[in-house]
Amino acid sequence: MKNNWYKILSVILILYTLIWGMLGPVPRLDILNETIRNLYYHVPIWFAMLFQMGVSVFYSAKYLNSNKKEDDSVAFNAALVGILFSIPGIITGAFWARFTWGTWWTFEDPKLNGVAIGIIMYLIYFVLRASIIQETSKARVSSVFNIFAFVMLILFIMVFPRLTDSLHPGNGGNPAFGKYDLDSNMRLVFYPAVIGWILFSGWILNLFNRLSILKEVNNE
């Protein structure tokens, strides 16, 4: 039980954001209206995805240093959890875009393009892993590629959107969340939501890792 505190905490935090995110006061803004509350659900899911990609690249680098098979396995599982989190991220974003920007998807927005490229990068990572049969070279090649993919992801979703105009707030030269930071009521829900979803993704990663170890032991 002592190692499971973060699982319980994640559930408490997310439940709090589900309840208070709906009831709490928000700024009354045109166009956004009540959809401003999506900030509590859409953005933390992307943060959880980024966190998992960060864990993945960390373990890939660790593998290249240690050559331990388990490290590569954690890197793979974290990338998988990250990609699984990007799916609800994209779908919730599409709904939000439909009712505020008037379209499900637009290639005008550099953040959308960037995230599409980033996801394709990670799909290549999975294809690469599946296509190399020899275990050690699979782990080595995919670890190197994972570092490249992570750098590209960060460039495409954190750096490039800030260099041009974006429909997303906090881009086009502005610091992220500058507009929302003014509203302390929203911060009370948004920050717990980010921590909650990151911990929740950690729980899923923990399960994936333990299943990988079980599979490994069973194969021996």
């Binding site: 700024p27 009354r28 803004l29 045109d30 956004l32 209206n33 009540e34």
Partner: peptide, 8 residues
């Protein structure tokens, strides 16, 4: 003005 935005 701030109160004008339509909310539920």
């Amino acid at each position: 003005n701030a109160q004008n935005a339509e909310m539920a």
